[in-house]
Design a protein around this nucleic acid. Sequence first.
DNA 1: GCAATTTTTCAGGTTATCCTCAGGATAGTG
DNA 2: CACTATCCTGAGGATAACCTGAAAAATTGC
Lengths: 222, 222
Amino acid sequence: MRILIVEDEHKIAASLKRGLEQESYAVDIAHTGNEGLDFALGEEYDIIILDRMLPEIDGIEICKSIRAEKIHTPILLLTAKGQTHDKVEGLNAGADDYLVKPFAFEELLARLRALQRRPTKTLATLLSFKDLSLNTLTFEVKRGNKQVQLSGKEFALLEFLLRHIDQTLTKEKIISHVWNYEADILPNTVEVYIGYLRNKIDKDFDTKLIQTVRGFGYKLGG
Amino acid sequence: MRILIVEDEHKIAASLKRGLEQESYAVDIAHTGNEGLDFALGEEYDIIILDRMLPEIDGIEICKSIRAEKIHTPILLLTAKGQTHDKVEGLNAGADDYLVKPFAFEELLARLRALQRRPTKTLATLLSFKDLSLNTLTFEVKRGNKQVQLSGKEFALLEFLLRHIDQTLTKEKIISHVWNYEADILPNTVEVYIGYLRNKIDKDFDTKLIQTVRGFGYKLGG
DNA sequence: GCAATTTTTCAGGTTATCCTCAGGATAGTG
DNA sequence: CACTATCCTGAGGATAACCTGAAAAATTGC
């Protein structure tokens, strides 16, 4: 189990590290927010312990940044105040649990164990068809063994196609599931996006997966 | 994937929307129960997130109303209290899952993914007569075990015939149902399309399914 | 605030589909 | 059988569906 601690007070950080290593965790320490973010993005941790109050950046911001990078590692937020207001803010920012300072070390251990029990990693949904695959957790898309880079809308459209493999989907249906209410989208926009997907997914391959069913819509097939 | 959020607290709703859009969901927001019900009945959603406590109507009531309209979209109920009593009530009303506020955003994501993994109830869409079948969801048409490729109008005409199996349909009736009102269509056009259908459906088979009732119209029979 | 990316619209070319027409086939009637 | 209303069908122009390059509009990142 690998743990990252982001905490500016050196003494506290060091004592946590010692205690956790005693429990056979592998511990890294970052003393500033930026450093912490670098570690979190660069290495793979099983849990991140994040202080709410940091010199440069707010812990909440770090938390948001980590989530924005699609990293779903469980985050435990440490905070000096115990107001529920703070708690809600932290949870909304993407933290998984929340501990008020000062705390008993045993309490921390218990929370860490609870976070580890959480089945977050098993939740990845893998959608696939033939040699095309899409991971809704990591946003990775592959055709064959080649990684494909998609934009947000392209991804959403492909996900919708993959969730309805044996159906022919009309442009209207696609619009109503991939776009929201206030988006007023022309059918042609769907055609354009299908074109983009074809360029990225079908262009370099012999078997074309995205099929046009003239008069009805589109479907995955081949 | 399209999500409806019914939540009266604007801040929470907005922050959820932002977070979910980051995850490539298409999100609509309703701030009152009535508005939420309108959205749920009028649009197609893949998931509905429903706050338990709403100003006008109780979330539970919205939930019941949605189910009463035969809409089987997965519903996730948000509630401030964590009493099991509430939980049971929510699930009885037709909710599929249940989350206590405040919650970690990651937790919400996990629940949503779980709800999406459920097999969606697809309503029966198969029209058939003898060994002829038509699927309105996939737009597939089969005669015997042979797939038949129809154009849009041909499909619409055959669907109309299949929905009125015992009736003899006049050309006028066919025109007014298969074409739209302002379309000014000659009766001969129907004859032409009946011909197209016969070529694709009856030509290679001994028993002819499309019958002419001279002076009155056409019907499926044989 | 500016550059880069993404989203959306627009205008064009291409092609299957749609629809009409005209002439031929067929069924019903006297 | 002849006559007529009705139906069938091959041919072809009009139409609408689809694709695509490019540019406008919106969004994001620095």
